[in-house]
Amino acid sequence: MDTIIDAHQVTKTYNPKAIPVVAVNDVHMHIERGEFTALVGPSGSGKTTLLNLIGGLDKPDTGSIVIHGTDITRLSANQLIDFRLRNIGFVFQAFNLIPVLSARENVELIMQLQRAPKAEIRKRAAILFDQIGLTDKMDTRPAQLSGGQQQRVAVARALASRPQVVLADEPTANLDSKSASNLLDIMSKLNREENMTFIFSTHDQRVIERARRVITLVDGKIASDTARVDTSHRHDVQTNPE
């Protein structure tokens, strides 16, 4: 197997000098390429913090996080930004897109940052919009897209840099069930067809049901880690715009 993420003895404490809150407590975790993993747990269990640590947005107090052979805890702030750009795709809960750019420009932004050739940027953006089923909305501003469509564009942007892993923080939290289901269909299709690794934090039972591995966090510790049967093939990807 190809290990993408290897987190070892990761601990993160907030307010260490005042009232310390241990958000992530001695977490060990291995994620293999192509996994479709859900991080679940009650509010305050440390899901988002763990996702931030894996994504290099925050630094752990102790432990190491190795992503595709690179210990990101040893990288400087600038190196981390560069690492995120090339290796990690993010889908946030909301307000994901730059409002002044069109959907296509939002997706192309990542490739612009990577200094990819213009022709390749255009080609890749077209493919991604085809995959998320929003080819006809490429030149639309985010404000003219529904919440679900915006999240699909965010997924396309996350994939634009061909990352090692896509981290999604409660991606369906603000979506209605149809849009959520549609987004999950797209993510699981990309996971299956492109062997893309997805990790998402969620409360959403629909998402948990679609995950092939569910890691449950309680008080910053891994309470359970369960592999599940892949059921995603039962769902057809709905590519019609909402």
């Binding site: 795709g89 307000f95 730059i98």
Partner: peptide, 8 residues
């Protein structure tokens, strides 16, 4: 968000 996704 821009810094998170890789903008220096």
């Amino acid at each position: 968000m821009l810094v998170a996704i890789g903008m220096k």
